[in-house]
Design a protein around this nucleic acid. Structure first.
Lengths: 127, 127
DNA sequence: CTGAATCCGCGGGGATACTG
DNA sequence: CAGTATCCCCGCGGATTCAG
């Protein structure tokens, strides 16, 4: 089955192996907290660079640009430059980006839902 | 609204702020590729340390133990030690862990679904 | 304001050796 | 086999500077 091997297994077929390695690469790109937080911050709206910087608490200038480039390259966000001075650049989620945001939302929901369980588990573990 | 501030914002209320910082911490722990790949590998079943090592391609001994400890501490996996020699340790997802796995599955599905879009976006970007 | 480039310190993470 | 501890190096990522 394909899904079984999509990210962790070792498919025999050359095509599957190629698709798998690509999926792995995308997964490694996208499955990091900064990318998720940026996607979450964008939501349904549009934000400028400096707004994102404020919205995503704790992110550095460099990490923000780096992740924005990555997300743009993978087609998750749309980057619109207004040729004004000073420049104004607006970022928006594309359709694939919004689709991924749904799953990031799910993770946020999960975190929210299990906060109590996790606190308990931690207290129990730290002894 | 709570969810708006759950991960990115700055709530005014002290309780919310505390919950938020905790949520952030959990999010930072859990939202990394190795944790996801381990969760995905465990799936519905039970795996030993050495089996996980094989299943999660490319993970090092150290990263595996480190992430397993973290996941155990947060109550996402159950660690069962069989007092035999040689030792036998089995890992299984707990209920919260399985709940999170559903969302990780969603990300895998997303990756699969948008592979084509992403390839195209990349080709277009790399010019 | 956005963002590329450079410098650099610190810690992530690999390899290895050792215990139970 | 599972897990901890130690060493060590490379690269992530922060701070700063310069450009458009």
């Amino acid at each position: 089955m394909v899904t079984k091997h999509l990210l962790t297994g070792l498919p025999e077929d050359a095509d599957l192996r190629r698709a798998d390695s690509l999926a792995r690469e995308i997964f490694s790109d996208v499955a990091n907290k900064w990318a998720f937080l940026i996607i979450e911050a964008l939501g349904e709206g549009t934000l400028r660079f400096s707004e994102l910087r404020k919205e995503v608490a704790g992110i550095s200038h460099k990490m923000l640009t780096q992740n924005l480039r990555m997300l743009e390259r993978n087609g998750l966000i749309d980057r619109k430059v207004h040729p004004t001075v000073p420049p104004r650049v607006e970022y928006t989620l594309t359709e694939p980006g919004r689709a991924l945001r749904a799953t990031v939302d799910a993770i946020c929901g999960w975190t929210h839902q299990y906060l109590g369980h996790i606190e308990d588990a931690r207290r129990h573990f730290d002894t």
